[in-house]
């Protein structure tokens, strides 16, 4: 089971990359834990998670081939 991770804004600075693949993570809570272990600075960050372009609310199941985006607060305009 593979998923594509996209990171934006300050999150991409923290992770040091804007796109990568991960495997065998079942849901968004597990993903958050996994990322926060790798990148402790994320623990204090406010960010939204979008799965296949939709912003998730609460824990969300991940399936093969999904695209998960890590999005800090927007600052367009």
């Amino acid at each position: 089971m593979k998923m594509k991770i996209l990171a934006f804004g300050i999150i991409a600075d923290i992770t040091g990359k804007s796109e990568w693949t991960i495997e065998n993570i079942q849901h968004t809570d597990e993903l958050k834990k996994h990322l926060e272990n790798l990148f402790p600075r994320l623990k204090n960050m406010k960010y939204a998670i979008a799965v296949n372009l939709l912003i998730t609310n609460g824990n969300f199941e991940l399936t093969d081939g999904t695209t998960v985006a890590l999005m800090p607060p927007f600052s367009g305009g």
Partner: peptide, 19 residues
């Protein structure tokens, strides 16, 4: 809108903009 602005200073250092 999922858009992010990076505020760049004269010495090319930057901070992420907050709306």
């Amino acid at each position: 809108a999922p858009v992010w602005g990076k505020e760049i200073f004269e010495d090319e250092s930057y901070i992420w903009k907050q709306n």
